[in-house]
């Protein structure tokens, strides 16, 4: 499973969000998307899953354009983990995760669907939560449930929109570790928009640094997370330390204009 994004553009009236994004992502790669607020990370993720309709360019999944795929077929191949889950009518964690099987379910839930839910619950270690109301969970627990729901889709591509932004450090590490494990073990390609440069550096195989709707730099964390790149894209002076071969970013001060 290979994902190719070519010349992708998206704009709201009078405001360009994505301006010709081109990138190729390899199978079982953990791909991080970093960049300041408002550079189009979330929009890019949504365009890949056709939640938003790009205005130009295309997203190819193994040579097929995603917009030509049947919606249900696409849902079997791409899983999406939103940044937040809106509060709605109460549902149990189990029912929330079971929803990930929707692309496979006609009306009846089969034994296989239940098995897949239970396996994912086990994988994420959230057995104790499974019959509690989703609305009563903490932020970290919710995020794990949302990851579980997407994994239940049996996707080949997993899209995650800043899954760690509201979590404490333990939950951050747990969620990142889970994603890393899944990409390695199941050959899933994961694309994650992420704010924390050090988490991106530590877990992602490659990162793309976005700036103003374009990709400013793409490559391994060592190549991308440099003092110069961060200064020009974020406007921040940093020191980059070497932490076991991975760059570790220490913010110093905003660049004076």
């Amino acid at each position: 499973m290979k994902l190719k994004i070519k010349d992708l553009t998206f704009s709201y009236p009078g405001h360009t969000i994505l301006d010709g994004i081109t990138v190729e992502i390899e199978p079982s790669e953990f791909f991080g998307i970093i960049g300041p607020n408002g550079t189009g990370k979330t929009t890019l993720i949504k365009c890949i899953d056709t939640i938003l309709k790009p205005h130009g360019g295309c997203v190819m999944l193994d040579g097929m354009e995603v917009r030509d795929l049947d919606k249900r077929e696409l849902a079997k191949r791409i899983g999406y983990v939103p940044q937040h889950a809106p509060g709605g009518f109460p549902a149990t964690v189990f029912d929330t995760i079971l929803m990930g099987r929707r692309p496979y379910i006609g009306w009846r839930v089969t034994e296989k669907d239940l098995e897949r839910v239970l396996e994912t619950v086990e994988l994420l270690g959230i057995e104790e939560l499974s019959l509690r109301p989703f609305g009563e969970l903490s932020g970290g627990e919710r995020q794990k449930v949302l990851v579980a729901r997407a994994l239940c889709q049996d996707p080949e591509v997993l899209l995650l929109d800043e899954p760690t932004s509201n979590l404490d450090i333990k939950h951050q590490l747990e969620v990142m570790k889970i994603i890393q494990t899944i990409t390695r073990k199941r050959g899933i390609l994961a694309i994650m928009a992420i704010h924390d440069l050090n988490l991106a550096s530590r877990y992602a195989d490659r990162v793309a640094m976005m700036h103003g709707g374009k990709i400013a730099a793409v490559g391994t964390p060592e190549d991308v997370l440099t003092v110069e790149n961060i200064r020009s894209v974020y406007g921040v002076e940093v020191a980059v330390r070497n932490d076991g071969g991975k760059p570790y970013i220490l913010p110093i001060r905003p660049v004076e204009v």
Partner: peptide, 12 residues
């Protein structure tokens, strides 16, 4: 109920 975006990603 899970939100429009999630629903879309589930093929609705």
């Amino acid at each position: 109920g899970a939100g429009d975006e999630t629903a879309k990603s589930l093929g609705v």
